[in-house]
Design a protein around this nucleic acid. Sequence first.
DNA 1: AATATATTTAGACAGATATCGAAATAAGGA
DNA 2: TCCTTATTTCGATATCTGTCTAAATATATT
Lengths: 99, 99
Amino acid sequence: MKLQETFRALSDPTRREIISLLRDGPLHVQQIVNHFATSNATISHHLAVLRKAGLILDEKQGKYIYYELNTGVLDEIIAWISSLMDQEECVCELKQEHS
Amino acid sequence: MKLQETFRALSDPTRREIISLLRDGPLHVQQIVNHFATSNATISHHLAVLRKAGLILDEKQGKYIYYELNTGVLDEIIAWISSLMDQEECVCELKQEHS
DNA sequence: AATATATTTAGACAGATATCGAAATAAGGA
DNA sequence: TCCTTATTTCGATATCTGTCTAAATATATT
């Protein structure tokens, strides 16, 4: 399932940090590797997991491969979580109106 | 810290299904076990993971221990994901600031 | 074409995790 | 108390996962 792959991909701290890096714009592999103490092979593996989950997109530019965020997939997670919260007590209503 | 535990807990399909079951109200362990083909030991382990992540709460009633959903922890995940999506829209503004 | 750089793949290994059966603990009801 | 039921813990195992080094592939520049 898509939801399963997304959750799995996000369950690793290194991969979440990669995603946080890409929040400010696309980066190529070397730039991403430089943010970590791990080998480029490891980062390449993490990028493959994120790519397979659809969380990042790759685009070749010159001698580099740039990775950028693809947040569309995250809508499913939000939808899944929201479906849990809707059933419960209505947390979304703002009660502190009287002050 | 908390975010890590939550993502980890949700990365397993059995645990997500347990959570989906609890969406309709509290259940005791036997009721949860009956929904799966796995042993009660395995389910107990999954419940421990979910409990430690704060995703479920346990309450003893008579001879049973009832588990119920605690969706509060999920706010952090939604906040994390939202922060990724918000940043995307702001990229153009940041570019203009520096021109 | 040759060389240097960028990225991925292969193979291996240690640690984490999901699962099981069986034993242990706890709590009621007879 | 004894017995039954409910739940967790224990020990063991098989699979998964993150990481490494080294090798392979790909691409640009000279």
